[in-house]
Write a protein that binds this DNA or RNA. Structure first.
Lengths: 227, 227
DNA sequence: TTTATGAGTTGATCGAAATCAAACAGCCCC
DNA sequence: GGGGCTGTTTGATTTCGATCAACTCATAAA
């Protein structure tokens, strides 16, 4: 079930700090925010499906969104998980206006929706808007390329180690953090079956990683880097 | 060995028809072309290396370029092969000015080089330039996401079948084309070892595909789609 | 307290592709 | 023609992760 609303104050705050809009002067950002609508989705709602006409692209305000390809035989492959402040599906502004992937709320989410036509119009008037969109596209492109390289070079435990390291403060040698979403979602993001993720965590015990529910504890960050 | 030159007439033609510049009015495109330099590389020359400062991004004029991640232990994973008219490494305009991947000429290539600073300046003055760059980024993003999905959903023979189908005319039921580059390069692009590509071609014989050197013949396009 | 439900783990098996090794084909050069 | 050199193929083996199935654990519902 979707509810569409205008932004409240808190949502506006989040949006202005998002990767996309934070690149802009506040005057410009506010002009865009004025044309944004909010969509709320319950857990596991479809947001859009591949093949559908694309009228919007999105920035996540709260929750996590799973973007995936659905194959002919019904299997799904995740191509990205997007959280608060991240923008997804901006590609539809240039690829003929059709979604090439499916998107689904992993849990209850609120999304800011940008109208494609409106944003195109804005971008054609103000170079700064195009540049901010480029930065967002570029960020997502880098992540996708990183993902391809990671898939092709590293084993399951190594990919999990990488993910953990991305969530550690840079300098400390021991750390602890909480997974922001379900393990099954992380598995998909890393291109693994849930069983493989579980086994990968086991394998990382020897490198000083311990897992209690969603809490990950890292005993020795350097050991993990060399795994 | 690199030689840097100004564009000749033929190269200018190719460049104006490239995915990036063809999005622009010819006046705007010509203004950009005026600031482009040409770099020629022999086969297997490094073009840039990951970690290097990035002063340029590129459009291929002739030949093919291989972009890849080099891992700590010296293995390489391709993240893209770029041919005539395609633009690569535009991401460096926004990711802090450092190359995150290596690029190498697969064979003798000529490249058009755009100065990052100059292009940023142009983009901040003329919205159309930003939009053209976005289209290029968007194209490369789509390809990268497609690649992730393909890797994760399909077996080696299926990925090869997909590649072949992309090179077939849409309607005909039998077709024939010539690989534009070495099989080992194709293997890398598809995330396969050369041996696996070879075996994948063998597996596709049963679907009516025959291979003689670089010539690929497809007997039954529909059979290939259902492989 | 039971029962149900969903997430996660553990075990056993299977399959796809990497790896290692060797044979083979084309091609340029002497 | 013979000798490299490179690219490709074929064969044997191994490894990683998917898959299927059973089981644990926690939480919610009855």
């Amino acid at each position: 079930m979707i509810k569409v609303l205008k932004l409240n104050v808190r949502e506006k705050e989040i949006l202005l700090r998002s990767y996309f809009l934070s690149e802009l002067t506040s005057a410009t950002a506010l002009k865009i925010v004025d044309h944004v609508t909010v969509a709320s989705h319950e857990a596991r709602d479809p947001i859009f499906k591949q093949g559908e006409k694309a009228d919007y692209f999105y920035t996540v305000l709260t929750g996590f969104v799973r973007v995936f390809r659905l194959s002919k035989d019904g299997r799904e492959a995740d191509i990205g998980i997007y959280g608060p402040g991240e923008t997804f599906a901006e590609g539809v502004m240039f690829n003929g206006g059709t979604h090439r992937f499916c998107a689904q709320s992993a849990e209850a989410v609120t999304l800011a929706r940008y109208e494609v036509d409106k944003l195109k119009q804005f971008a054609s008037q103000d170079p700064a808007i195009g540049i901010a969109l480029m930065a967002s596209l570029s960020r997502n492109l880098d992540q996708a390329l990183e993902c391809v390289a990671d898939d092709r070079l590293h084993t399951a435990p190594q990919r999990v180690a990488n993910f953990i390291l991305q969530n550690c403060p840079e300098n400390a040698n021991s750390a602890r953090f909480r997974l922001p979403f379900q393990k099954s979602l992380l598995a998909g993001k890393l291109g693994l079956a849930p069983e493989a993720l579980s086994r990968a965590f086991s394998a990382l015990k020897s490198a000083g990683v311990s897992v209690h529910g969603r809490i990950i504890e890292i005993g020795d960050v350097n050991a993990l880097k060399n795994f």
